[in-house]
């Protein structure tokens, strides 16, 4: 996908890439292809730009843990086709 923003370098083998899904709360899924060592901040900003939402509005969760922009799929031991949940912040009184 163009939005995943990674460069196509010939020396990178395809196994280094992961197909990740970002699932919005409205049920739609966006697919991203990202290098294992790419920071999530790239994916997050691509997703937010695509959905035209502000990054401050959304929380990204993976297996019940919030994703941080500075983490990478490798750190979290993500597998191919893993799903990230995009959740809107909860505010209440």
């Amino acid at each position: 996908m163009a939005d995943s923003g990674e460069d196509k370098k010939p020396d990178v083998s395809s196994t280094e890439h992961l197909n990740l899904k970002v699932r919005s709360q409205d049920g739609t899924t966006t697919f991203f292809k990202a290098k294992k060592t790419t920071k999530f901040s790239k994916l997050i900003s691509a997703f937010c730009a695509k959905q035209s939402i502000s990054e401050a509005e959304v929380v990204f969760m993976f297996d019940g843990e919030r994703l941080r922009g500075e983490q990478t799929p490798e750190e979290l031991d993500m597998q191919n086709d893993d799903t990230i949940d995009a959740m809107i912040h909860q505010v209440g009184g």
């Binding site: 709360q25 409205d26 049920g27 969760m61 019940g64 949940d85 959740m87 809107i88 909860q90």
Partner: peptide, 17 residues
């Protein structure tokens, strides 16, 4: 637990499809 588990479980924000 954190607050997103129930949200996810109850499909918070998903239109009632």
């Amino acid at each position: 637990e954190n607050s997103f588990l129930v949200a996810k479980l109850l499909l918070d924000g998903v239109s009632s499809r």
